[in-house]
Design a protein around this nucleic acid. Structure first.
Lengths: 138, 138
DNA sequence: CCACTAACGACAACCATTTTCAATAAGTGA
DNA sequence: TCACTTATTGAAAATGGTTGTCGTTAGTGG
């Protein structure tokens, strides 16, 4: 059923860029990064490639507070993120207590086929130190 | 500093509608609901009113999996949601274990000014029973 | 009742994301 | 290596939620 995936220059480029980045980036940013790096990839292709990779579980996708999708290559397996709202610095964390809580909550209310999202945003050590602001005034 | 809030027909209408609803709805849906109910309110106004109410903590706003903002009048105080992905039925839940976990995680990694979002989506008892699908076919 | 200005709302502008569709180029078997 | 199939690309146009513009309307305090 699933279409065979072809190995192309564009997909390699996106994957490679994602490898060296440790923060969550939007499709638009990735598109700009690639252009800047010389390896131009169409915006449409960036979107499609990210969708395919997300589908395959090769990247994690999360929606920012502004509704924009952000992507990042992550380790396999279920985990959550601690994200700096100023610089995008990300730490992967596991959350056993949360998993248990979610499962129990679902059972308690008769919900089935549950999934959960947990994101913790704040200021990373570096940004806290320099008194960074979410969307700094002037 | 904050502008004095005026009591208008439109804001009353939005607030009233939100009171009788127990599910999360998009601004567009609310706009349609109001029109249908006879009390027409401009789409722009719906957006602004919801923004004001969210700011004031009178409604909870969360972004759906598609990036669309959804609103719902909730009880005051910090809490999370258990949402049915098929019918929108919502249950408010508190999550002490999660709060503790988030706080500890933040400390451990030196993050400050942290906030967290926790959403659990699944199928409510009624929808599980009838074998509902996320985005039902036909 | 008046003045002041918050609030309204039709419409245009924004902008991330998706669709369209003709041109390309992986992968494959001969 | 050479056709051949079809996944992939990408420029441009379409979509659609949300926000900005700006002249008009209408709360509210005096």
């Amino acid at each position: 059923m699933s279409t065979p995936r072809r190995r192309t220059r564009q997909r390699e480029a996106v994957a490679a860029l994602l490898q060296e980045r440790t923060d969550f980036r939007t499709a638009q940013q990735i598109h700009a990064d690639l252009r800047e790096a010389g390896a131009g990839v169409g915006l449409t292709t960036v979107y499609r490639t990210l969708a395919v990779m997300a589908e395959a579980g090769e990247v994690d996708m999360l929606l920012g507070e502004d509704g924009e999708a952000r992507y990042r290559a992550c380790s396999a397996g279920h985990h959550h993120h601690l994200v700096c709202r100023s610089c995008g610095f990300t730490v992967e964390v596991t959350a056993a207590p949360v998993e248990r809580w979610a499962r129990r909550m679902a059972e308690q209310h008769g919900f089935t086929d549950v999934a959960h999202t947990v994101e913790v945003v704040g200021l990373c050590p570096a940004c806290s130190r320099r008194g960074a602001l979410p969307t700094g005034p002037a």
